[in-house]
Amino acid sequence: MMMNGSIKYVDGKEMIGEGVGFERIRRITGYLVGTLDRFNDAKRAEVNERVKHTVSREVQL
């Protein structure tokens, strides 16, 4: 997995995390595959275009 980078001193303050991205886990075709950066181009595009589905009252059971 991703390393968190090493401590760097900025103005005498210990800083960490430079260059470290966020991990984004998404479902791909029924399974998870770890972070988005491992998706192929088409699947990445698909994830980007996904819209949310509203849960309306009618779902109430």
Binding site: K8, V10, K13, E14, M15, I16, G17, E18, G19, G21
Partner: peptide, 8 residues
């Protein structure tokens, strides 16, 4: 994303 944060 990509930014550093202070250890404090």
């Amino acid at each position: 994303e990509g930014e550093a944060v202070s250890v404090d």
